[in-house]
Amino acid sequence: MSINEDEIIHIAELARIGMSDDDVKSMQVEMSNILEHFEVLKDIIVNKKEPLTLSDDLHSVTREDLDINKSSSTNDLMLSNAPDLQEGFIKIQSVFELQ
């Protein structure tokens, strides 16, 4: 099965990846080559739709809602990885347009 350039552009939008025209062209060729190898699956009949998990003890991981006493230095270390900060908050470009 091959994929065309319009589909590549659509998928890139879903994946939020910017692409130049050249990127689209080469991605189209590479993905078509890869998809060809997936053809072996086409005759498989799907019986069960529950996902197959490999751990028999799958549980939700939650903790008690308690103050876990993380020091402020952990906070600083977390924030120090952010590209832009203002007054202890992560700063981003505006989401809403000004009226």
């Binding site: 994929i3 589909e7 590549i8 998928i11 890139a12 879903l14 994946a15 990846i17 991605m27 590479e30 993905m31 890869i34 997936f38 699956l41 086409k42 498989i44 009949i45 799907v46 019986n47 069960k48 739709k49 996902p51 197959l52």
Partner: peptide
């Protein structure tokens, strides 16, 4: 990027049944 694209494609509407679900069945 190639793998993110492949995965996004396999999970996208219209291809999920053809790829992802069949892969899960083959995994079983």
């Amino acid at each position: 990027k190639r793998r993110i694209m492949l995965g996004t494609y396999a999970l996208s509407s219209g291809y999920y049944d053809a790829y992802y679900l069949k892969a899960q069945e083959a995994k079983r």
